[in-house]
Design a binder for these strands. Sequence first.
DNA 1: AAACCATGCAACCGCCAGTAG
DNA 2: CCTACTGGCGGTTGCATGGTT
Length: 300
Amino acid sequence: MGRQSCCYKQKLRKGLWSPEEDEKLLRHITKYGHGCWSSIPKQAGLQRCGKSCRLRWINYLRPDLKRGTFSQEEENLIIELHAVLGNRWSQIAARLPGRTDNEIKNLWNSCLKKKLKQKGIDPVTHKPLSEVENGEGNGSNKPSLVGHHPIHQYTSPPPPPPKLSSNWFNPEFSPPMTASYGPLYYGTTTGGSANNTTWGLVQTQTEEEEEETKWTELLNSPLLMAAALQNQTPQSYYNIEIKSETCYLTNSSSSSSSSNDMWWPQTQQQQLPLQHEPLQNPDICGKDMQTLTAAAFGHI
DNA sequence: AAACCATGCAACCGCCAGTAG
DNA sequence: CCTACTGGCGGTTGCATGGTT
């Protein structure tokens, strides 16, 4: 017995969103926040399912979205994070302010995978393709549930060239991302263990839960990493505050489901530094929603 | 100029986990 | 404890656009 989509059940609209729908949703959430997604369509006068509204909001209407093409630094960071987290796009996105999991996933599938392959790196294991092919029989490359953790490739002793450098699409590129490696792969781990085996530990860990915990601990702290990403000082970064979309939305919903008129302005403030940041690739073209969003928030 | 192809992106689908009743 | 509902996530699809032949 197959399941029917929520849209099918209620004969709701599907497909691309019209500007009118966007405006309705934006206006509604701007005014009332999104308490319960399932009730939003009705309240906002939309013929959509709640899921669809949520997705539209998260991937397109949210005011803190960065948009534009990914910078080299961001791409590199995604690759690094993917090596650690695997296809956990939402977690990767949480470390890239203003980017959505969908965006990152698309980038990975359409672009980064190819780039890695061109560089002779297996996008799944993040190991050199030759190595992957050779080691295929011995089970050493057996995929794990959460992807592979070839951290040693990136961490083992200071990042010098060998395989690590092959990950840099721009060979001349080094800082600030090189600096960000510290917190990501070593820095945050030094609290517990000072040696370089910390991530190796992750790699060889058999207890998955323990693994998870370590990742969480490690990855929740690299604020400097993102600071480097933004080419900002750590301090200015703190102003932005790393917030995954999940946190972002959670905050709003937890603050109160209906009358949470507090979270918007606050969030906006946090995003200001980002907005002032000059876009390297201002291809916001055709996506006037950004303007609409900005306009909407100007009224709050 | 037209047909074809490749690419990027937005959105949907289906599954899962958490939770309220 | 069970069930239904909801939100969240990753995988996948389909369309629009731009480039190439």
